[in-house]
Design a protein around this nucleic acid. Sequence first.
DNA 1: CTGAAAGCGCTTACAG
DNA 2: CTGAAAGCGCTTACAG
Lengths: 343, 343
Amino acid sequence: MSGQRATIQDVAHQSGVSVATVSRALRGKENVADETRARVIAVADRLGYQPHTAASWLASGKTMTVGVAAPYFDVWYTGRVLAGVEQVLSDAGYDLTVYAADTPDKRDRFAARSTSLQTRVDGLLLVDFSPDTGQLARLEASGIRIVAIGERLEPFASLAIDNISTAAEAVGHLVGLGHRRIALFGTEDIRTIGSPALTDRRTGYREALLGVGLAADPGLDIDCPLSVAGGAAGFDRFLRIPDRPTAIFCLSDETAMGAMGRARELGFSIPADVSIIGFDDHDLSESFGLTTMCQPVRQVGERAAELLLASIADPAAPCEHHTVGVELVVRRSTCPPATSAEA
Amino acid sequence: MSGQRATIQDVAHQSGVSVATVSRALRGKENVADETRARVIAVADRLGYQPHTAASWLASGKTMTVGVAAPYFDVWYTGRVLAGVEQVLSDAGYDLTVYAADTPDKRDRFAARSTSLQTRVDGLLLVDFSPDTGQLARLEASGIRIVAIGERLEPFASLAIDNISTAAEAVGHLVGLGHRRIALFGTEDIRTIGSPALTDRRTGYREALLGVGLAADPGLDIDCPLSVAGGAAGFDRFLRIPDRPTAIFCLSDETAMGAMGRARELGFSIPADVSIIGFDDHDLSESFGLTTMCQPVRQVGERAAELLLASIADPAAPCEHHTVGVELVVRRSTCPPATSAEA
DNA sequence: CTGAAAGCGCTTACAG
DNA sequence: CTGAAAGCGCTTACAG
């Protein structure tokens, strides 16, 4: 309680043993007499001794810390991933240091720090990072163990859903209901940062249309941000499309809910006037009655953390890509188009 | 790029100066000849030298990292706070290490580590931590600079909204519309963990009712979790209340949206059949048309981080409590009761 | 403006 | 089972 921290020296003196023995006793190493260990532990408790973090790191070369670089911590997806990651890591005794990597500039600075990160974390989780060539080179050179989430990223281990087939299944659901003109909401990040996940989803959208002999019409792309506000603004633009589409595929649930909210505000009825399908299965999607593709986000975080832990424990662990399953959840926001013959 | 990290020694040798000079040159300290500095920087760049994190920490006593303990990273509130915190800290050159403190057990373990945290972070942000006496004592004894978010927590600096008056204003809105029987959703955490923030909100609810001469009826408390699922389940129980209330005050927007979703699913019309008001102004509340109390969560995170930075820079900085303003946002989920004389 | 040296507080072979 | 000693890689007075 008094001013100074107790050091391992203090514990050693008061226990009548060397600092080496204190170190072994406190960290549960073998080759310490039971009686000695008990005495050391008692003294350490009394003194409130806890090892100096930096001194341990420096001497042992381990930090018991994992870094997570992710875009925005206030989006639903990132929060869920983080929750899964945190649970697995804290159970394993690791701390979690987070890095916002939402802009190209921040990703650059992050990658540039990689040599120093090597002595700051035992491993790194990259969420939708999509490094460019230079960034990837630095990351590789750092020698840090890395697991990527949301994309395949050789030569590292990775974990992701199949965005192409998942998007194709979503659009296939609409096509199956009879829709032929289907708008695509949320492509802004494809244009601005070239997000691979979103690009793949658009590819799946196009493939599904091609599968029934329809060419994708660029006039149906609504280039709005992937957010609630983006979806709301997107709906206003959607209304100005000539020969209005009967359905909308949104690249995220937040976008979809923003669009639905705006639609209802304007007096449109969903799905009677327009069908909407999302992508994620956000916590609120059920309340919105939103049909969507459910991806197990939290489990993705957990599994990625486990992969990283395995790689830390065994540097020779294989660096494979793992695909995560997704499933269609049909709710009330989709139905056959009003003009459709069948109904 | 080859196997080994470069050390300050390597840079010193190749620059023909001492390690002390390298240290000064690279960290922008004064008293280094321009020409020397330039040479050192060039060598450091060529070698890809970056200081060993733990060695710097140990020698300097600073970690340039801040810890944040918060309940659940996948709830909207925490994510927003974190985003605000992260922005301010990363701009100031600090890293952010997060600790989930969602259970009493985790909070205990966290507080017990405080001596070692003292050498791991330069400061701590506690989000809705509500330490018990023992935990608070440990936190204090650690000597770590701390700023509390969401509650007053002497002797530390803190930042919070006034939950009592804010809740009273929300309920006052309903009362002003003519409602007299108003249910309260989301009290589970009051019973289980005794959350001070939620307890205050309930107090505000009761005070607002008392203000118009109404005694709070415990039969109108719906003891459900503060979540989307909690609100949905709560609505089912709400329907079984005899002499059904005409309005609902939910202790969070997520609870409110869960209730609204369930209500609509069951064919109820909001607000015609029942008015609902929330608390937060969640990103999706506008899309839901939810009337609520808007608290500037992201700014709370930013301001708390600034307070902490100030306290790190100047240990003598005052430890005051700061109150954050909240405002009523009226949307479509509230209206006068159907039975009300005025309308 | 620069260097030699002490020191930060641990962990880890190596002897015994 | 235990201790002495080296070493982890920096930063910071202190001299000069």
